[in-house]
Design a protein around this nucleic acid. Sequence first.
DNA 1: CGTGATCGTTGCATTCTCCGCAACGGCCAT
DNA 2: ATGGCCGTTGCGGAGAATGCAACGATCACG
Lengths: 252, 252
Amino acid sequence: MSQTVDRALSILPLLAQGPADLGQVAMRLGVHKSTALRLLRTLHEHGLVYRQEDQRYRLGARLFALAQEAVENLDVREIAHSHLVALNEQCGHTVHLAVYEENEVLYIDKVESRYPVRMYSRIGKPVAITVAAVAKLLLADLAEPERRAIAERLDYPMYTSRSLPNAGAFLKELAVVREQGWATDLGGHEESINCIGAPIRGADGRVVAAMSVSAPNVVVTAEELLTLLPLVRRTADTISREYSGTTPTKKA
Amino acid sequence: MSQTVDRALSILPLLAQGPADLGQVAMRLGVHKSTALRLLRTLHEHGLVYRQEDQRYRLGARLFALAQEAVENLDVREIAHSHLVALNEQCGHTVHLAVYEENEVLYIDKVESRYPVRMYSRIGKPVAITVAAVAKLLLADLAEPERRAIAERLDYPMYTSRSLPNAGAFLKELAVVREQGWATDLGGHEESINCIGAPIRGADGRVVAAMSVSAPNVVVTAEELLTLLPLVRRTADTISREYSGTTPTKKA
DNA sequence: CGTGATCGTTGCATTCTCCGCAACGGCCAT
DNA sequence: ATGGCCGTTGCGGAGAATGCAACGATCACG
């Protein structure tokens, strides 16, 4: 809608791939060097881009600070956190909290496993949307037309032989998840890692977030992990109740 | 420099404090509602802001993804990471990696302690710049005038009784750090937590990053922690060598 | 040591884009 | 039913952003 801003913001994903100099930015934006310079300067003033010693630009520190502040101010996260820690202390495994937002599912909190073998993930990182337990939970709750639309728009990379291969299989899985109120990912993302997850619901019953417990095969088998299901669901329900109970506008 | 972009970007820190509706954004920007709307729309298209169900705006998912990608593409971080993990496996404590950028010091990597008592910190979070060991290391290497300028611009919050109280004490401490080539924070940020840190240098000898090991009193005393100093310095030097050796432009 | 090329930077005139206004329409509360 | 609030849209004018061309610094190469 706003050309100038549009161009300026297009620089960010460009720099996310790696540092670039003025000429490269101008070229990839399709604008004159002087224009690119002025845009970069404005971004720089706001701390979103940083100029390193070789004069090339890369993303700046304030970007992290912003993402940081934002994630810490999410209501669900704030409420859920202590419960996730408690769950981690009981079972010892990695606990994740995720939300859905505009075709992406992303982790907004994480409590690390106490076992030496840990899975790789990071807060803010987009989730493998076609296989992760939390993704299934979040998508399963969308209205049918939207769910279908998204399912058909997605790619279905075969991370492992047990990854869901296409929109049909995915929608079928979502129907199951929707019905039973919990979800699993048994080696669908990484062969040796299993997850079980449960939804967190708002006052109106809609799913606002999802949580999961993940553990590698070498620590517990899938069957053993499944015995934790009642505990996980109970935790999720506790968080749901607390979340529903809070007044809409809390502390400023 | 660019008014439109400037206004648009000013919205981000505003939303970082919490969700806001159109009217609030317009008012706090000092522009007409229609203007704010168009700016927000553009930000929305780029995924930087998200419109939640109550129509209020908050920061969006892509912001996290960007910060994420950016931090993962930092050369130092990539090189250092495996060494930090190795160090953590040897000593068991929390290991941090930090860089300086435009008046801020921020963590860009972290390996969690294997002990149950952990200190709170998060990648991307700005560091307590007047007390942290890594901050001292990074600032100590700046040219004298800049160092002095920054020192006098800073606030000196007294986190504990051992926090550095003012610019004079801070500069004195920096001189010591600069001389000895390593730094400590003994209870200056949190009473019960000690850190020791060492600098990572580029080919030209300038400090490009700093790393530290942190542990609470209840796990090891400050004296015991200091026995790890040779190990920490050796790790930092190893990373420095590897970093200096790399060709300036690696993998596109 | 000199010379050419490359890249970032600046001032300026033109034009396009963004801005504020005012009116519309939906929603909620009264 | 009705009034107020908030988000949204079309429009003309004004101001801002754009591209151009020239400058200057830095670096590589002869």
